[in-house]
């Protein structure tokens, strides 16, 4: 469970988050959408203290990770981060390790897991994300979709109770987006608690329990996907969804996203 209470964050004189409160219930998936610069990635990064929230409180599984600008002491913070998986837009795989080493390294270093055991665990996870045959190659030889699936396996190796996804498909070629979303969908179905920042409206509609719309550092609207996509109450939400459609028509974004288009979207997207 993730509890965000009245969080503020600014970079210099720019206020990025203004009084944001949000709860992700256990085993639920919350998708955060909104225009770029709305603060959604910053909010996600605050959840494992990659950014330090200036004010307010964030609790992960009932434990306060940061309160009013003071994060947990390093040791406890590390332990809590170990239980909070993070997936980045740019994958951030370790290029000097093979795929399986990428996945097994953190359990060995952080949890002092014996190498053989960690390797077994890593192989299981790689098979789960469909990369069983890529264990011994270096990340540079993987496609973008494969890299992101390996990065998800790497996060899962720490047996996290919460997963944070920071635009996991934004750096991918359109034809590779599906395979990553499929892995994420499976995770959600298995009961993982997930907070996902994404532009994939199809995923939001299909997988999210709650969709949160952010703009200019605030949450404008939150609710079940049906409500947000077919019956948004806020003008900002309508404006954002409309802009996505226009962007799509102009060829800027590969994925269509309008209330209508979303309704017509096949479920196996």
């Amino acid at each position: 469970m993730i509890e965000i209470r009245n969080v503020y964050k600014s970079f210099g004189s720019t206020d990025v988050l203004k009084d944001v409160s949000l709860t992700v219930q256990p085993s639920r998936t919350t998708v955060v959408i909104g225009p770029s610069g709305s603060g959604k990635s910053t909010l996600l990064r605050c959840c494992n203290c990659l950014e330090t929230a200036d004010r307010g409180e964030i609790r992960i599984n009932g434990r306060t990770i940061i309160k009013d600008g003071t994060p947990l002491p390093d040791k406890e913070l590390n332990a809590l981060r170990a239980e909070t998986g993070m997936v980045f837009q740019s994958f951030n795989l370790f290029p000097h390790m093979t795929t399986v080493e990428n996945v097994m390294r953190a359990p060995v270093v952080v949890r002092r897991m014996p190498k053989a055991e960690a390797r077994d665990l890593a192989m299981d996870l790689l098979r789960k994300v469909g990369l069983g045959d890529k264990a011994d190659v270096y990340p540079s030889t993987l496609s973008g979709g494969q890299k992101q699936r390996a990065a998800i396996a790497r996060a899962l190796a720490m047996k996290p109770k919460v997963m944070l996804f920071d635009e996991p498909t934004s750096a991918l070629d359109p034809e590779l987006v599906g395979e990553v979303l499929q892995v994420m969908k499976t995770l959600a179905e298995e009961g993982m608690t997930m907070m996902v920042v994404t532009h994939e409206m199809g995923f939001a509609r299909e997988v999210a329990d709650t969709v949160v719309v952010m703009a200019e550092g605030r949450i404008v609207e939150a609710g079940p996907p049906d409500q947000i996509f077919t019956n948004p109450t806020q003008e900002r939400t309508r404006g954002f969804l409309r802009a996505l459609v226009d962007g799509h028509l102009a060829g800027a974004r590969p994925q269509p996203a309008t209330p209508d288009a979303l309704a017509a979207l096949p479920d196996d997207h």
């Binding site: 494992n48 990659l50 390093d74 040791k75 590390n78 332990a79 981060r81 170990a82 239980e83 909070t84 998986g85 993070m86 980045f88 740019s90 951030n92 795989l93 370790f94 953190a106 270093v109 952080v110 990065a151 790497r154 996060a155 720490m158």
Partner: peptide, 16 residues
Amino acid sequence: IDRGQMEAARSLGMSY
């Protein structure tokens, strides 16, 4: 070295 490398390692629970 890309900042993301340190971030990824820290996000997995590794100390600095």
